[in-house]
Each structure stands twice: as structure tokens, then as C-alpha cells.
Amino acid sequence: MESGFGSDFGGSSGGKLDPGVIMEQVKVQIAVANAQELLQRMTDKCFRKCIGKPGGSLDNSEQKCIAMCMDRYMDAWNTVSRAYNSRLQRERANM
């Protein structure tokens, strides 16, 4: 995947880059970065909530807790996103 990005940006079509291709690649890279960001923060938060004392394996109740925590984290993310968006909208209307 990385070599794909690199070689395409290198300009295989003789230095002239297709804006459409660049935009597509930028979109993919942004999506990947956002997914990684979410995964990292979610793992951190749910580990803290669900793993009290790390045992010999991820037991059943811990797995249930993690699954629930993931869903609630997504709910929280969406709630925050909506709240921030409506705040921005209100401030724009007041300008």
C-alpha cells in the first residue's frame, strides 16, 4: 500500500499528476488516519474501563465489557460530533 502511494505521487505519467487521482488518494489516507486515531483512543479507553487486573486471558466478562465499551465510545463520538457541529452552526449564525 505504501509503495502504491509513493509511486503514484512520483508521477508515472511524466510529471503531470491527475488531480482526480490525488484527491482519491488523499481521501483514502484521511480515512485511514481517522480510523487509526479512533482505534487507538478507543483501545486505550476500553482497556482502562474493562481490564482491572490483566489475567491469563481475556475472559468472557472482559470481552463483553469491551464490546459494550466500543459501542458506547462510538455513541459518545457521534454525540460530541453533533454537539460541536451545532455549536459551530450557532456561532456562524451569530456572526
Binding site: 481517522n34 486515531e37 479512533l38 459518545a76 463520538w77 460530541v80 460530533s81 460541536y84
Partner: peptide, 9 residues
């Protein structure tokens, strides 16, 4: 949004 979600969590 990532930052505030983490903080508010």
C-alpha cells in the same frame, strides 16, 4: 472531535 470525545469520556 477525537480530542473532545477522549476528554469528555
Amino acid at each position: 472531535v477525537h480530542q473532545m470525545t477522549e476528554l469528555c469520556w
